[in-house]
Amino acid sequence: MQTKIAANASALKRWFARCEETLGNHSDRLNAINIFPVADGDTGTNLYLTLRSANGAAQTTEGTDLGVLLRAAAEAAMENARGNSGTLLAVLLAAMSEPMQGANRLNAPLLAAALRRAQIRSWSALSDPLQGTMLSVLESAAEAAAMADASMNGDDSNHALSVALDAIVDAALAAVIRTEEQLSELRDARVVDSGGVGLLLVLDCLRAEILHQDLQAGLLDGLAGYDVHGSHIHQSMPVAEGVEVMCTIDLSPLDAANLRMRLDELGDSVIMSPMVQDSEAESYRWRVHVHTNEAEPALAVIRSLGEPQNVSVSELRAATHDHADD
């Protein structure tokens, strides 16, 4: 039987809506296994709130251009990104929007190009990217999309898109399972990466919405640590010290490189990505994220290069309940 396909802007809007609902439903369990890079128990909340901003923008964007829709969603996500995971999700959306500019229908070659762009941008956004995280799950999904596209010789049919979507979810699931062994922190705690699970859910939402199917039953069954009755693992771990600083700021590429270097000296978990890349612009907007002992030295460095907006400073501690009513 021919797979029913809806791969237009309306389908992507439904994807965003389903992602918001799904991440909301899973946020507590994602929080419960969130121990890397900091055991602060808020990855689920951060992914949900970031995606909620993206969905709000997507639903009010008119037209049929997939790139325009994704760019609007990505810009909203970037401006309101929460934490490491939310920032990386925003980077992913921004990168995916670039190959889709001018396209009115998603197909397998376009999906492969979008995920490959997202992989490259996401890995380059971090100063110290690691396997065993959202990055490795995205990498596996991108590779699966490219292999599926190559095996079908660039076929842009609905059938080829269906095959590619199934392949990326299968590859993402396998990558999530591997995360437990790729990072010592996850291996010791016997859990998979929380952000990786969140990305898996986002990808399965895309597959389900485009193919007019339900989310895969039992997709998360058996994942290490992902037990709906389990306690929040971070609550038994040492409280993280320091703060998380986030903002958006207009920078030239040279100033952005300078800022990254200086933030690397002050802290870790540095993520910097342009919201929209424009090779002809002298400066453009960047999303900045860093973990550091004190906020003011990092903010002073940032302000020395421009005027930051949407500045957020939060303590690196188990904050699941603190964020619940945001």
Rank of each mutant, 00 (worst) to 15 (best):
N31H: 06
M152F: 13
I33P: 00
S27L: 14
V301L: 08
E294Q: 12
A72F: 02
L203E: 06
N258M: 07
P308D: 03
S279N: 10
R82T: 01
V38K: 04
E280K: 08
Q309R: 13
L66I: 11
A32T: 07
L30A: 07
R190C: 12
L69I: 12
R190G: 11
G102V: 09
Q182L: 15
A118E: 04
V176F: 01
A113V: 07
F36S: 15
L201C: 03
E62Q: 13
N8H: 13
A172E: 02
T60N: 15
A257G: 08
S314Q: 13
D156W: 02
A108E: 01
V313E: 03
A125L: 07
P37V: 00
A144C: 08
N8F: 09
E280D: 13
R82F: 15
S85N: 06
G218F: 07
L47H: 02
D128I: 10
S231E: 14
S304Q: 09
L299V: 09
S269I: 03
G102Q: 11
S151L: 13
I33E: 06
Q101A: 09
D325L: 15
G242W: 03
A172W: 00
D170H: 00
N107E: 14
D204C: 07
G102M: 12
V228Y: 13
L69C: 09
V169N: 01
E180S: 07
G24V: 06
L165I: 09
A73I: 05
A73W: 06
I271T: 10
A300K: 09
I249E: 01
N84Q: 12
Q119F: 00
M78S: 11
L215D: 06
D214R: 10
H291C: 14
A167K: 03
R303E: 15
A72Y: 01
L89I: 08
A114F: 03
D188K: 15
L110T: 04
A74Y: 08
N104W: 01
M1C: 12
C19S: 11
R71Y: 00
Q309H: 13
L165P: 02
L66P: 01
T292A: 09
L110A: 08
T248Y: 05
A74E: 03
M275Y: 01
L70S: 09
I5C: 12
A257V: 05
A90L: 02
A9K: 00
I233E: 04
A32W: 02
E265K: 12
D28T: 15
Q131V: 15
L126A: 14
D268L: 03
V163P: 05
T50L: 12
V202D: 00
L206M: 14
L211R: 11
N310Y: 08
S124V: 11
V301I: 09
S236H: 12
D166C: 10
G196Y: 04
E143N: 10
A208Q: 05
L215A: 07
G41Q: 05
